[in-house]
């Protein structure tokens, strides 16, 4: 199990890495994680952009990036 430790608005979270993928549309790499908690019967999913050059993970701010992550999740789950 691979985890990412992150502080979101001063709250520390231990997130389990589910998938990483690179989108051909945006040419960016993303990581998708979960804290394994359900909120309103929905599993909490967190996603970030991987900046391999700088070796850092960045917050997603662009709606296009969120769309890529959503598309991936949908496609992946449909195919399974």
């Amino acid at each position: 199990m691979k985890n990412i430790k992150v502080k979101i608005n001063n709250e520390e979270k231990d997130l389990e890495v589910l998938y990483t993928f690179e989108s051909e549309n945006t040419k960016k790499e993303y990581v998708i994680c979960t804290d394994n908690l359900l909120e309103d019967n929905n599993l909490n999913i967190y996603s970030f952009i991987i900046n391999s050059k700088e070796r850092i993970i960045e917050k997603i701010t662009d709606e296009n990036d969120y769309m890529e992550v959503e598309k991936f999740l949908k496609l992946y789950r449909e195919e399974m």
Partner: peptide
Amino acid sequence: INAKIKKYSDSDQIEILDAPNELFE
């Protein structure tokens, strides 16, 4: 199980404390 992606606004503060090396390979 339904999955919902958490979205953040510009004002949200996110700091990565630790991440596995494989992510950057």
